[in-house]
Amino acid sequence: MLSILMARLRQGHRTASYPRLPPVLPERFRGRPVLDPDACAAGCRECDGVCPTGALVAGRGRLTLDLGRCLFCGECARRCTRGAIRFTRDHQLAARRREDLTLDGKEVRLAAALDEKSRRLFGRSLKLRQVSAGGCNACESDCNVLNTLVFDLGRFGIQFVASPRHADGLVVTGPVSRNMEMALKKTYDAVPSPKIVVAVGACSISGGIYGGHPEQCDGVAGIVPVDVFIPGCPPHPYTILDGLLQALGRVSAARDS
């Protein structure tokens, strides 16, 4: 017993000060990309064909990047010598609408909060059922890690629960393999309404690296309606947490306090 108490003392207090303070991210972290189409030279083909998922579209005076497909591998930024594409260390990536994930070098549309009614229902207590549908266990791990004492998801009133019957919504990862399509639909149906669906990771938004494979469904939105999109491959745990808190309208409120 004494050794357990001694260990407790030694292990210390480890819960992060987020969201009061910004998260600590690694120096090489690749977060939200920033595009500068004006830096592109006519006829430049440096980033042509380097994107493994076709997230980056360049040419004819246009430069767009679909965060829903992006693996954040950074290959495009590495090839571009003109500084038209660079990855910042901003972890905030979530959006409420699929089309808001396409960057074009102009304004950035961060995730807006859910509507008033949903916020009143879920704002202080959100129970989520996680469904992995072809996910590689990286997105799943980074959802799971939110339960550790570092992130301490429970203090936000958010909890992963065992049964869809106890849940207010689903967190779905993976491109939705054909073999998981029915299970996902059934799980969704088992969640009582009103409910929300959060798609975590490039696979769940667009199929990601598996996009176009006949063995999968190119993401969740074709199977069940999605309310929050959280890009990344996998998204950093802070990106996921931020997406959930943005949707509940709680990030800014927490930061002000």
């Binding site: 064909g49 380097v50 994107c51 493994p52 998922t53 693996l71 591998c73 992995s132 549908a133 072809g134 996910g135 590689c136 990286a138 993976g174 491109p175 393999s177 054909r178 073999n179 998981m180 299970a183 990601g208 690296i209 598996y210 494979h213 006949p214 063995e215 999968q216 491959c233």
Partner: peptide
């Protein structure tokens, strides 16, 4: 079998650009 995404097939017949990313996932 629920997680089958067709990786081995895609390494042979898919985009070579994706190969390393298949391996990473």
């Amino acid at each position: 079998g629920y997680q089958h995404r067709g990786v081995e097939r895609a390494i042979v017949s898919g985009l070579p650009l994706r190969a390393i990313h298949y391996m990473e996932t």
